[in-house]
Design a protein around this nucleic acid. Sequence first.
RNA 1: CGGGACGUAGCGCAGUCUGGCUUAGCGCAUCUGCAUGGGGUGCAGGGGGUCGGAGGUUCGAAUCCUCUCGUCCCGACCA
Length: 478
Amino acid sequence: MARNITPRKENYSQWYLDVIKAAELADYAPVRGCMVIRPTGYAVWENLQAKFDAAFKATGHVNAYFPLLIPYSFLNKEAEHVEGFSPECATVTHAGGEELEEPFAVRPTSETIIGHMYSKWIQSWRDLPVLINQWCNVMRWEKRPRLFLRTSEFLWQEGHTAHETEQEAREETLRMLGVYKKIMEEEAALPVIAGEKTKGERFPGAVDTYTCEAMMSDARALQAGTSHFLGQNFARAFEIQYQNREGELAYCWTTSWGVSTRLIGALIMTHSDDDGLILPPRIAPVKAVILPISKDENTAENIILPKAKELAQKLDDELGGLCVKVDTDFHARPGDRFFAHLQKGVPLRLELGEKDLASGTVRLVRRDTGEKLDVNNDNVIPTVKKLLADIQNNLYERAKTFREANTHDAKTYDELKEIIDKQGGFVRAYFGGTPEDEVRIREETGATPRCVLPGNDKGKCIITGQDNARLTIFAKAY
RNA sequence: CGGGACGUAGCGCAGUCUGGCUUAGCGCAUCUGCAUGGGGUGCAGGGGGUCGGAGGUUCGAAUCCUCUCGUCCCGACCA
């Protein structure tokens, strides 16, 4: 249907890029791996940001800002951390026309510099917990960039907390994982599985890493957000010590957690179709668009437009403002205007023409299903509210149904191989192997352990044959 | 980082092998006018590129050579 978008079945990667281009979400920057987030894409990010930020504040966190440049030596203080990040770290070696004595790292993440500051700020158990979040950009020099999913520079949020006890820090890690899951599911309509990462997939420097794992519409997995229990690793590396209630010096227990603009990639690949972008109403910058239609421009402008504006105002009042757009591009033909909004993923289209005025109705068209409804003027506002809620719900349910239909169980390693090879999707299997086993599985199947399911479901490991292995999801991932 | 493909107007392409035959062409989009108008309308007229960038070969380069930047696909690598 859309002539500027490659059908999903034909070439998934191309489809993804075409949707981004058609919806004007982002464009390539002149620097390899970097992108420009265009106003529409940025508006989506702002909406996501607003939801997460409110949830962070509600759980007692405050925002702050730490610098972009980090003394490179800081990264070296945590062995696993530097090993994990140095390959993708950009460094600044010159400034002011001179070579620097010590290079700066452009932050790939901020555990180190925040750890450094925390060691200065934290003296006593009375200073704890410290619950700080920052919204910023980070840079990771990726070999193979893809818009939103893996760009050299991206926007994200990183929460960094320090606690008095291990239990408190562990609770924080899981609390934020829960916050992520809730917002992803309720606001972004992305069904996710919240679970633990295996050893091989852990964040460099973490004791435990948790993830919200989503399935894209090609049945591949996408890590949508992570939360890390850092134990005392960074506290020891940066001497984040405090005097405890007994008057002794003790190391803090820290956590970190983040979600990024990658979520926009997840939204695209979860909800959109061959006509272009589909956005869940709760995070769509424009929730509904009203199109005044008439073959006579004068009628459109002087009779229909005022009514459209009036309706938009009423809807805005009901929906919380600035969410309804009136399309005043009378010169363009209706078909062109439909497609423009279709591709940009506006959840609901309201058509208001002479026929509607005569019959006292408005035509409503859903983006997710294409369903059309003629609704009496009196019922427009409640119907719009209902439809937006329905669309939100439908997108979530649709994605969840797809995920469930593409999730299979494997009793043996051979079965796992077979399913990954023939059907793809998520494969549940008991796994208790080592990181070396994970590497071997990846090499032999292309799949990686995405997440260990919560709960006490245990069984015989498909690799080692040992009992008590935890139920783990394997999949090919982005 | 290895293998492959590619970079010519906003988008998609032809021309590149066999340098001059083009003031660099085509489709879509765009602009103007008229008609049209509820899922991509029709006719007419117009605007826009110096061929990713730098250097070289040549009387002459979008076309040949060297370097460089970027994109896509596969692989390696990677929260």
